[in-house]
Design a protein around this nucleic acid. Sequence first.
DNA 1: TGCACTTTGGCAACAGCGTTGCGAAAGTAG
DNA 2: CTACTTTCGCAACGCTGTTGCCAAAGTGCA
Lengths: 375, 375
Amino acid sequence: MYRTNAAAPGGANLPSLRSHNTALVLDLLRTAGADGISRLELAERTGLTPQAVSKITARLRAEGLATEAGRRASTGGKPRTVLRLVPDAGHAIGVHLDRDELRAVLVDLDGTVTGERRVPVDLGAGADAVVEAVVRETGRLVADGTESGRLSEVRTLLGVGVALPGPLDHDRGVLHRVTGFPEWDGFPLRDALARRLGVPVVVDKDTNAAALGLAVGGERGSFVYVHLATGLGAGLVLGGTVHRGARTGAGEFGHQVVQLDGPPCPCGNRGCLEALCLAALDHGDLPGAARVLGVGAANLAALLDIDRVLLGGRTVARAPEVFVRGVAAVLDARARREGAPDGAVPVTLAPAGARGVAHGAAQLLLAPIFGHPNG
Amino acid sequence: MYRTNAAAPGGANLPSLRSHNTALVLDLLRTAGADGISRLELAERTGLTPQAVSKITARLRAEGLATEAGRRASTGGKPRTVLRLVPDAGHAIGVHLDRDELRAVLVDLDGTVTGERRVPVDLGAGADAVVEAVVRETGRLVADGTESGRLSEVRTLLGVGVALPGPLDHDRGVLHRVTGFPEWDGFPLRDALARRLGVPVVVDKDTNAAALGLAVGGERGSFVYVHLATGLGAGLVLGGTVHRGARTGAGEFGHQVVQLDGPPCPCGNRGCLEALCLAALDHGDLPGAARVLGVGAANLAALLDIDRVLLGGRTVARAPEVFVRGVAAVLDARARREGAPDGAVPVTLAPAGARGVAHGAAQLLLAPIFGHPNG
DNA sequence: TGCACTTTGGCAACAGCGTTGCGAAAGTAG
DNA sequence: CTACTTTCGCAACGCTGTTGCCAAAGTGCA
């Protein structure tokens, strides 16, 4: 399986060149999905010569990652042959560990969910119990997949991605003080799971996983995924890649202060977005909560100049239109006042729904194959 | 002169591989400065083999970009030969266009300022007058440089970088509504200057230029440069590169809302950082202004997880310690409350001083040579 | 039906990249 | 002076994408 030359401190050699171009072609094949894409189109999109694309796709076909799938209509000459990704050539499991629920999905190379499990879980029950639950559920997903013939070989399982509420250290796979569950502080979740599962494991914040899932799912450029459930967080995608920051702690959207000397927040600060938002929700004031969210989103949009704001999470799902409209109203008003030439940043509902985080967690393993090192 | 393969949509070929590695080596040579760096050290730092480094440095020496400069002490065998960048092999001019002053600097490859001019200018006097002033001052810089023997050939002038208050379109080099001077809206400054000067011109916001200058000057990782003068803005460097966002408008720090329903700002919003900050300054309340700045910086640090906050600009220069201490106090307090394992994000004064923006503007032309495409 | 034309896409030869094997150069240590 | 270590370039090499060329597979017109 192809991986980018991650270890090198920057120097590039021929193998890394090859990996890069192969990943590029694979990414285009994935994006094309079931429609497929022709060799010549691949050449145009990558900037490579047709002959180079022929060589690369020949390798991919020999390794079972790509296949020919029909032809296009002729435009006066030999018709183009359509190439397609072979989705079953690789799988990954994405696990969404929420405060009260575990959701695991089996995902193939092109992002299709081919298996899913949901069980209640208590994050407060301690590390051993939770690790055990993850091992059990991923095991069942693999068993089901093998039985149905989808996971024909164990080797096609690339690894397991785990997404859960932060803060945590993505690089080392170690949890910090998961809000509300101090006993998790310092637990090396990635290594503990990798030892038990025997496959690579990647750990990330739920918001980052969801944002990665959206980026892989076709959302281009820079955007923010705002997640409102028991807490408030954000996943940032800047220029197509998830921005995690120096200590992989970026996205602390909930504790942005937007009211100097405002009401106190459990985090110790005053006037945090999360505190104001949750307070409004407690009063049943959804539009008020949306407006507060909008102020935060508008700040973020101005600071980072993003293309889009995507909303998700359980609370948003309860009244999607109220939140989308409320947040958009704040952004529109600000754009009008500032006379933005292209209008306001659009606000939409994250399309993946309740499965978004688990799906994105699986992409933590799949994305590197397509040339997105850390997503 | 080496340039990265910018036009390609992602596909890499052998020339682009070569450019990449050459730029990498040049960047290390530049970073090493007058001390120089040995071939073996270059090999270790890049991950390339010693032989590859020998070939690359041989090319660089043949083209006059690098030279041998002494040897290190032996460690039991043949002593390492030290290589050094030839600073005079290339120059760039950086122009800082402020509301009332034009500052232009001539900078060589390793960032040393070898010529400087300062003249009063009125941005409100219209485009023609300002363009004329830039043409005149850059011309004099070149004339002085040629006379002193530094600019031995005209070909060593790579181009002119112009930095001025935003907002503007960096990609196209077109100004938007420069705050306070609506007549500039839509003026194609880059093309107008390039036609008159006959060399490449790059236009950017003053804050971005300063941030780029700091990044090139050795500031690693992710940081924010906060500029407080007649207005308030920020330049973001994320993972070593300047973040400009989708429409190159990122860094709108001044109009971050931190007080819902706060005092009105000329921009039309309420409770903007800039409004609060300038109001405090009007009352002579520097610590108050610093505190407001600190709240904004803390929000940004939490959102983006940056390594450092750097302060600059005329107002900061008037009482540097008050601002550094005031901003740091807010960040420290928040870090303590949240129990950040590594402590608070450090706050320091931007080292480049009043010349920072002009120096950074020159780096807009130099950075691509060292593998930083847009800085 | 047959011929001319267009377009696709693979084979073979090629240029250029970093890599490997090896030896000359230039020091230190005894 | 000898033995050893370390640096560093020459030559041969393997592999990359590129170029030149030609067979295959269509369309369109006579």
